[in-house]
């Protein structure tokens, strides 16, 4: 298969904003502490209010938590199907009939600090889809998806870029 065979409706999505939405809940400190605890991050910026006041004008979230604020609840009242994080990735798997997928690369650029109480908004942009390639996992395509995060004032707080590989396992 060649790149020319990438379906036109997929090519048309490249660089287009998709899934613009607000987070399900405000940024909150309990999750910040849980995240720091998970990696034993003792940075006083997240644990000591005096240090946070001195350096950042008050508490902030660990910058690496950007995607945490957009991962949907595992369950919520009235939710009939579970929402998926990085929906564009799952759309590509379905549209290109590539049942398996892995993430290989992540690039995150951190802008304005995220603070408790912030309600972030996000959008996803498909940046590229490769021609079909054969790897040790199987045959499939690499794609790059950017996720842009803004706070309630419209300030850019971060941009994540994910490289995924959707594939079919090759017959043995």
């Amino acid at each position: 298969m060649t790149d020319a065979e990438l379906p036109a409706h997929i090519s048309a999505l490249i660089d287009q904003p998709q899934y613009e939405e607000a987070g399900d809940f405000p940024v909150e400190r309990g999750y910040i502490w849980t995240a720091c605890a998970s990696v034993e991050n003792g940075n006083p910026l997240f644990w000591d209010d005096a240090v946070a006041a001195e350096l950042t004008g008050g508490p902030i979230a660990a910058p690496s938590m950007l995607s945490t604020w957009f991962r949907p609840h595992h369950w919520a009242p009235g939710l009939e199907t579970q929402k998926l994080p990085l929906q564009v990735h799952f759309d590509l798997k379905k549209e290109l009939d590539l049942p398996e997928a892995v993430m290989s690369d992540n690039t995150t650029i951190f802008y304005e600090p995220v603070r408790p109480g912030d309600i972030l908004t996000t959008c996803q942009r498909l940046r590229s889809v490769s021609p079909e390639k054969q790897t040790k996992l199987g045959t499939g395509r690499f794609w790059v998806i950017d996720v842009e995060y803004r706070n309630q004032k419209g300030e850019l707080v971060g941009v994540e870029s994910w490289t995924g590989f959707g594939y079919r396992r090759d017959a043995a």
Partner: peptide
């Protein structure tokens, strides 16, 4: 993956202390 990002942030700021401000991580 997101937890690995958190480990990298922790590793870098263990070195810099709280005045270190990470601009970019790519793994």
């Amino acid at each position: 993956s997101p937890n690995q990002l958190a480990w990298f942030e922790r590793y870098v700021t263990d070195w810099t202390g709280p005045t270190g401000r990470v601009g970019y991580l790519s793994f």
